[in-house]
Design a protein around this nucleic acid. Structure first.
Length: 657
RNA sequence: GCUGCCGUAGCUCAGUGGUAGAGCACUCCCUUGGUAAGGGAGAGGUCGACAGUUCAAUCCUGUCCGGCAGCACCA
């Protein structure tokens, strides 16, 4: 007998080997019909699984949130069946559930195209209509391998070999079609329902390995019901609308062109945002960091010393004199891909004492990396970008305190942009690394301790995690991942402890005892790449930037030319108050002007007509709002000036008051 | 870099084996209109680049460049 505890805490006895399906049927017919799986002590399993031990049991119905993964997984299987039915000879590989959906990778000489999807989707609906039950069998390895070999499924044979020895080789059948799968699955294909859609096709390497064959992947999305599917598709549309590449063009912020793949042409408005962001960061560094600027072009030897030339040469730009007649035109320079070697040179220049530590050098350093062409993506991944970089030279004892200080800076910076949800992850030693195990043990212990403090300090707002083996080759690191307004995660900030570079470059300081010591170096970035961070901000705000960041903060627009002089005076006063204001005196209707400035997302339009000119008022129209507000020019000036004050400056003013 | 798709006016896109079109934007004229497009006229393109096939290529083929979606990469 087994004792099973139900969600209402009632405990009932069943004979061992009872199945979830039998239990559900025993409770009610309707439950049995709705049931798609069973959860034993929280772990999902098939309704047909025999229950041989005491456990907490739940009958999982189709509308349970946990069923969504099953719906998607089953949909992947059905898609594979549909594909093999339509395109005989296509080999199946793997088909997992992913965020918002599923995919299945196929091997076929001719990759799938978007045009193939409607037929596959129709076939899937047909298979779902058939409503064949999912049944499970456990096969021996040899049996599984020989069956898949006979079917010509070479990839499946490889997968059977990859299953750990202590796990069963499970085969799931749906009608005549079957697949190697760890399960679980729902009761029958009909339970998938109709709220799914095939989305796109893409190439993907077998097992993620570029040396292995390219497979043809089909992505799909699947949901509990049509409403959820519709909501998801709507969310995708919203994301597309706030695509920073589109907004960048529409708002005239920047552009790219063929001659400069992956490098940004910043237009006046975009550059205003950029500079506003840099100015913000500079204010945040004031009093703590010293800003420096290291050369763009440095002899190759420096990059050999740092190790970049050996490790990242493929991703670096080299430069040489272009003239044929120049004596040393065999001398090779590299355009900097990082700022650290430069900063170490600055540290090394002049003897440093332990009293100088921690020494914090910051730079808005423009770096260039030859990113793979397929990786380029608007501002998010470029070949030339500006890091809000800093290197802190300190002692090992100072390391933990420095990491916490950086943490405070990063968290408060993100908060100023409205990012309050974030995750800090500790990346630990990778396989390829430098430094002794003792040094890594020590560094990881220190950082683990810091991580705990970060979590404790945050009062639960910040989640923490560990990425094993993801550290840099020279030391462990923290990664700061923020969540934007539509729930997407972006890794931006990073704090990396480095035991390697200072020693390689022979950097040292004179310690209390008069001995030379090698400092620890901490690399840190907050925005990471200013370009990318701006891209994230544009998407996060959907172009509706807070006033302090908006390139054009106010447009003063006239209704008739009678108000031209007054409007010009208003614009002038705004400018004197430090507000970025444009003047629109064109001979156009106010409708036209409002529409045009609204489309480029100007936050505030001050409409001035005859009435305003006579009364000394302005009519305030905010972006996205239909109603207007009339107020005196003086009041408007004060209010706008207040609103246009960056959040950090507001804080300082509040403290001073 | 790999796979697939794409490249026509500043933008969004039609189109054809016989050297091109629309809407918006732009310029000029008329219009002075109270909160998301007033009317008219005009200008604007070596159809991504280079080769090939053809009497003839923007269209077909190839190579290259660039973009998009994934994959891989990201010091």
């Amino acid at each position: 007998m087994v004792q099973l505890t139900f969600p209402d805490n009632s405990v009932r006895e069943f004979s061992a080997g009872v199945t979830g399906r039998e239990i559900a049927e025993g409770i009610s017919k309707s439950l049995a019909k709705k049931a798609v799986a069973v959860a034993l002590d929280g772990e999902l399993g098939d309704l047909s699984d025999r229950i041989e031990r005491d456990a907490k049991i739940e009958i999982v119905t189709r509308d349970d949130p946990r069923a969504l993964g099953l719906i998607r997984h089953d949909a992947a299987h059905v898609m594979a069946e549909a594909v093999q039915e339509l395109y005989p000879g296509t080999q199946v590989t793997i088909g997992p559930v992913i965020e918002n959906g599923f995919y299945y990778d196929f091997f076929r000489n001719q990759p799938f195209t978007l045009d193939d999807l409607p037929a596959i989707e129709a076939k899937m609906r047909e298979i779902i209509q058939r409503n064949a039950p999912f049944t499970k069998e456990v096969w021996s390895r040899d049996q599984a391998k020989s069956v898949f070999e006979k079917k010509g499924e070479a990839f499946k044979v490889e997968l059977v070999d990859a299953i750990p020895a202590d796990q069963d080789v499970k085969i799931y059948k749906q009608g005549d079609w079957f697949d190697l799968c760890r399960g679980p699955h729902m009761a029958s294909t009909g339970q998938i329902g109709s709220a799914f859609r095939l989305m796109r096709v893409a190439g993907a390497y077998w097992r993620g390995d570029p040396t292995k064959p390219m497979l043809s992947r089909i992505y799909g999305t699947a949901w509990h019901n049509e409403e959820e599917l519709k909501a998801y598709l709507h969310m995708l549309e919203e994301a597309e609308k706030r695509d920073h590449r589109r907004l960048g063009r529409e708002m005239d912020l920047f552009h790219f062109q063929e001659e400069g793949p992956g490098v940004v042409f910043w237009h006046p408005k975009g550059w205003t945002m950029f500079q506003e962001l840099v100015a913000y960061m500079r204010r945040r560094l004031r009093g703590t960091y010293q800003e420096v600027n290291a050369p763009q072009l440095l002899d190759k030897s420096l990059w050999e010393t740092s190790g970049h030339w050996q490790t990242f040469r493929e991703a670096m730009f080299k430069a040489q004199p272009a003239g044929d007649e120049i004596d040393d035109n065999d001398r090779v320079y590299a355009i900097k891909p990082m700022n650290c070697p430069g900063h170490i040179q600055i540290f090394k220049h002049g003897l440093k004492s332990y009293r100088d530590l921690p020494l914090r050098l910051a730079e808005f350093g423009a770096v260039h990396r030859y990113e793979p062409s397929g990786a380029l993506h608007g501002l998010m991944r470029v070949r030339g970008f500006t890091q809000d970089d800093a290197h802190i030279f300190c002692t090992e004892e100072q390391m933990a305190a420095e990491c916490l200080k950086i943490n405070d800076l990063i968290i408060s910076t993100y908060a100023d942009f409205g990012f309050t949800e974030m995750v800090v992850k500790l990346s630990t030693r990778p396989e390829k690394r430098v430094g002794t195990d003792e040094a890594w043990d020590h560094a990881e212990a220190v950082m683990m301790d810091v991580l705990k403090q970060i979590e404790a300090q945050s009062g639960g707002r910040i989640k923490t995690g560990i990425n094993p083996g993801e550290g840099a080759f020279y030391g462990p690191k923290f990664e700061y991942v923020l969540r934007d307004a539509i729930g997407r995660d972006w890794q931006c900030g990073t704090t990396q402890v480095d035991f390697n570079l200072p020693g390689r470059f022979g950097a040292y300081y004179i310690d209390k005892d008069g001995e030379k010591k090698t400092p620890v170096m901490i690399h840190r970035a907050i925005c990471g790449s200013m370009e990318r961070f701006l891209g994230i901000l544009i998407e996060n705000y959907a172009g509706h930037l807070p006033l302090w960041l908006a390139p054009t903060q106010v447009v003063v627009a006239t209704i008739t030319s009678d108000a031209d002089d007054y409007a010009a005076a208003v614009a002038e006063k705004l400018r004197r108050a430090g507000i970025r204001a444009d003047l629109d005196l064109r001979n156009e209707k106010i409708n036209y002007k409002v529409r045009e400035h609204s489309l480029v997302k100007v936050p505030v339009i001050l409409v001035c007509g005859k009435r305003e000119a006579e009364e000394g008022t302005v009519n305030v129209r905010r972006l996205g709002q239909k109603d207007q507000q009339s107020m005196s020019l003086t009041d408007a000036l004060v209010a706008l000036q207040e609103e246009a004050t960056p959040p950090d400056v507001k804080r300082l003013e509040a403290e001073a008051a």
